[in-house]
Amino acid sequence: MERLAGRATHTKGRAPLMHAVVKGFRGFAAYMGSLMGADAYRKYLDHFTATGHPGPAMTEREFWRDRTDRQDNNPQGRCC
């Protein structure tokens, strides 16, 4: 982080500003993505590799199918 910021200050002109804008936008997009659950598969893989389950992990397609199919039997309320 700090190294990156240091490098940015050396660059003259609009580059640092653009850099900050792009970084801010990426951060926001990543936040919205996690909020909507877009990173669920990555988290599942992380968990899968960390715990060392036997057998192969679900593919992305299988994971999302499994996810919505399990919701069929475990509905989550949405408030008013």
């Binding site: 993505g33 877009a38 992305e60 994971f63 999302w64 199918r65």
Partner: peptide, 10 residues
């Protein structure tokens, strides 16, 4: 999401 591009939520 189911058939074309699974997981591309955003």
């Amino acid at each position: 999401l189911r058939y074309l591009r699974p997981g591309k939520v955003m």
